[in-house]
Amino acid sequence: MDKVIVENLKVKKGNVAILRGISLTIRTHEILAVIGPAGSGKTTFLRCLNRLIDLEPELKPEGRITLEGVKIYGEGTDVSFLRRRIGMVFAVPNPLPMSILDNLTLGLRIHGLGGSGPITLERVERSLKAAYLWEEVKDRLKESALKLSGGQQQRLCLARSIMVDPELLLLDEPCSGLDPISTAKIEEALQGLKREMSIVLVTNNVKQASRCSDRTAFLLMGDLVEINNTDQIFTNPQDGRTSDYVSGRFG
């Protein structure tokens, strides 16, 4: 089952092409890893999927992206609802300067789904458990989110993004600044979450892609070099550049 179909996605900044025609699909209940050296357009690709790219008027995406058959750049797309269906976790943990609870309920409040009450608390508990953070914060939900460690903060951001039950979760190098234990917890969380949603994991860490993704896409200088099942990419890459990159010969 295809969740998202990307066809010939191009993004330009002035005369410089950032993405040069990407076509791929994201399936339901899979973790798709996107790897590639810095500057290959991974983050831009991710930000096209939830239209966060709209915040940068100098970047104009072309091509076609559909979510369950509906164009996300179509006329009259409800961007707010789209972003409720597509969650995002950023590279740098970015909890807001408010309590852990308020961070978690922000999405609910934005979408008018209430911000308190037993149902909300149930959701909070479920999200925190899914993000492997519940045990560490269950007694201090009213405390500031900024008191958490970096790894805890990132898991809080993960929990925050799944509070509104997205169908697709975008992660932009979520473990780039984290220690191995925090990284392992997030990877474990993703394995659980993929039962409920599709996940796109952009990562600088080739090993992480091989550890926890079902399929892997390799981007290089704005081109999609190869996309295949992860074990194929790592054991039997079809393109010479892919094998060079995954074996650590460049990048």
Binding site: L82, F90, V92, I110
Partner: peptide, 12 residues
């Protein structure tokens, strides 16, 4: 980044 958090959650 704080602004982007809200936008990514679907805030107007």
């Amino acid at each position: 980044s704080h602004r982007e958090v809200a936008y990514a959650l679907g805030a107007t």
